[in-house]
């Protein structure tokens, strides 16, 4: 698989605090990669090392095949970066800032003109004329997205782009990420697990400086397997008869005719089906409960 970003054995300490303890991961081209972790897990530190803004203590990072070097900006031509709280020059207007960003990235005037127009439309700031100083937080986040994309980077790195936004603002940012995924690999850190579930196809969980879970969302869920079975019975009597055969600790009553049986592996699920057969009960429905990204995350950081 063609990787646009690879990290090998990355370490970073701030004084005595070991923030990263040998993380390794690869981000395939074309993916939307969720970088999950609790606050202080090392997500921002990792991103800043990728961008050459911070110096790793050990380990290597390659972006589009080129090695990242601290303090140098050559690999940044492949990268667009949206900081968690993007800061702009308040006296500029959005279009003006994009022109400045485009010039800084070495684009021609015609490219800047064309890209600015496209991106301002994409992020919904096409008609906004006021200065950035008067922008709301959500508007700044959207302008941040536009400036990060002005030079059509191969990889967009977003540091918690939705954390501080209201539901509408969050939806807008997720829609933008969804819209660009065809042309740009997206890596975004977050602790909002629902956002990962909605748009990511791969994810890594960073916990105490280590990657504790990594892979495609489908693989991760399949690896964990079902978390239980949800059964709906025709009558309360059927439910009672079934519950008599199962230990109380595995049972979670949902209603008078439905129940969840917690299982840890497929063998236990086979046993539940065997119990139904033994008791000659045919449930109205039987459904395996898939793990959510939330349950995967909680399991990984336990």
């Amino acid at each position: 698989m063609n990787e646009v970003l690879s990290i090998q054995n990355l370490h970073k300490s701030f004084g005595a605090a070991k923030v990263l303890q040998g993380i390794s991961l690869g981000v395939p081209a074309g993916s939307v990669y969720g970088f999950l972790g609790e606050n202080g897990a090392g997500k921002t530190t990792t991103m800043k090392i990728i961008l050459g803004l911070l110096q790793g203590d050990r380990g290597q990072i390659h972006v589009c095949g080129e090695k990242v070097r601290f303090g140098h900006t050559t690999t940044n031509r492949f990268l667009g970066y949206l900081p968690d709280v993007p800061q702009f020059y308040p006296y500029m207007r959005g279009r003006e800032y994009l022109k400045f960003s485009g010039e800084a990235a070495g684009l021609s005037h015609s490219q800047i003109h064309q890209r600015s127009g496209e991106l301002l439309e994409l992020v919904g700031l096409g008609t906004v004329k006021k200065k950035i100083g008067a922008y709301s937080r959500g508007m700044k986040q959207r302008l941040g997205m536009a400036q990060a994309l002005i030079h059509q980077p191969a990889v967009l790195i977003c540091d918690e782009p939705t954390s501080a936004l209201d539901p509408t603002g969050r939806q807008e940012i997720l829609d933008i990420l969804r819209a660009i995924r065809a042309t740009t690999t997206v890596i975004f850190s977050t602790h909002i697990l629902g956002d990962v579930e909605r748009i990511c196809d791969r994810a890594a969980v960073l916990h105490q400086g280590r990657i504790v879970l990594e892979g495609s969302l489908g693989d991760l869920k399949a690896r964990q397997g079902s978390q239980g079975l949800r059964l709906e019975f025709a009558s309360r009597e059927d439910l009672t008869r079934f519950c008599e055969r199962v230990l109380d600790e595995f049972i979670e009553l949902i209603s008078q005719t439905s129940v969840i049986v917690r299982t840890t592996d497929i063998r236990q699920e086979h046993q539940v089906i065997g119990m139904l057969a033994d008791a000659t009960i045919v449930p109205l429905s039987l459904e395996a409960i898939s793990p959510t990204i939330e349950s995967l995350f909680l399991e990984a950081v336990r």
Partner: peptide, 15 residues
């Protein structure tokens, strides 16, 4: 202190 240089530096302007 404000962090306004971060987007500039990540665009490729040398320090």
């Amino acid at each position: 202190s404000k962090g306004t240089l971060i987007p500039v530096l990540t665009k490729g302007i040398p320090r």
